[in-house]
Design a protein around this nucleic acid. Structure first.
Lengths: 121, 121
DNA sequence: AGTTTAAGTTGTCAAAAAGGAATTTATTAT
DNA sequence: ATAATAAATTCCTTTTTGACAACTTAAACT
């Protein structure tokens, strides 16, 4: 439970001030400071706000041991919700989706490759 | 934040007593009762213990709105990996996927509805 | 150096929330 | 209906919180 440290790592990686994060999630800056110092517990509500503020999950926030998960850029919020829904689809549909996605990924990978090597070809 | 309800749904789905869950995660039964009733906050530490006790993530525990993430955790291991990949697709592709998924979901919902009401129609 | 300004930390304390024992209210079984 | 078990509630004590001012650091400027 190294949440405190994670808060600091995340915030600094984003180049934000304590005050900014604190205000964004609705806690008093002085108390946010204590949270980063491990001197105040973080409620689930606040953890939830912080996680979505940073575009990660609560679990990532709680369990990443000082390591930033994936791109901490803004990940499509609505995407995540919809991803949950995919899992509810019946198998046939789910597989169809996956085939399409795989196709797109291949295309995308190829494009990347092509762009990076265009000059050498 | 319907955590309280989720606790109850999960526990009952597993056929466990409050006391059992309470003991498993180290909270006093009277307080666990309050947590299920929404009269006590759940700390992150405890949420974490409960989530791993039920084999789900904190986010699922917090966000599943009364719906068990049933086999979701086990169902499709490769699904989750692929889901991450969707986020890497370029916007156009991602949106296409979402349109398709939405379509499938609609179809699926309709099917459900039809099955449930077939006799009354 | 000394001054100003911004960022973060610390101490305080009333108010709020938590923990736990005992009690009461279901619920279930005999 | 009674007993037994589970859950909910009450009550009281202890702990934690939230908000704010005061304080320390750090950086920036003259």
């Amino acid at each position: 439970m190294e949440l405190a440290q994670n808060l600091k790592v995340l915030r600094e990686k984003k180049g934000l001030l304590q005050k900014e994060v604190a205000n964004a999630v609705g806690v008093h800056p002085s108390n946010y400071s204590k949270m980063e110092k491990g001197e105040r517990d973080v409620s689930i509500e606040v953890a939830n706000k912080i996680a979505s503020f940073f575009g990660i999950t609560i679990d990532e926030l709680v369990h990443m041991n000082g390591k930033i998960p994936k791109e901490v850029t803004i990940v499509d919020k609505s995407a995540n919700e919809r991803l949950q829904l995919i899992l509810q689809l019946e198998e046939q549909d789910r597989n169809a989706i996956f085939r399409i996605i795989d196709g797109m990924l291949t295309k995308s990978k190829f494009k990347d490759f092509f762009n990076k090597n265009a000059d050498t070809l």
